[in-house]
Amino acid sequence: MLEVYIWFYAGCTLVIVGSLATVIGPGVKDPLVRTLNTEIPAVGLSLIFLTYNHTIALLTFIAATSIITLILLRTIVRLEEMGAEL
């Protein structure tokens, strides 16, 4: 039974640390760094899904996150190329 709690709290810690890292972490002025940082809470969330045995949700989440990251990266690079000042 212990392992359920271990995975759960590990996931929680990762999510919180990861979101802190995304919001106020070092180098987040660069949107690229920030986007990559969002992957840390994503891993934490995956662990939480695992504790609840939400296997299918987990698989879909992984697929969706990778697509979201792809979209964001494309946006960032294109905006950079345009020289947009936001």
């Binding site: 999510v15 995304t22 919001v23 949107p31 920030r34 969002t38 939480i48 936001l86």
Partner: peptide, 16 residues
Amino acid sequence: LQVLILTDIVGVAMLI
């Protein structure tokens, strides 16, 4: 753009 990236975090909270 940064706000857009940060909304991702809020979404994670919802999923939890």
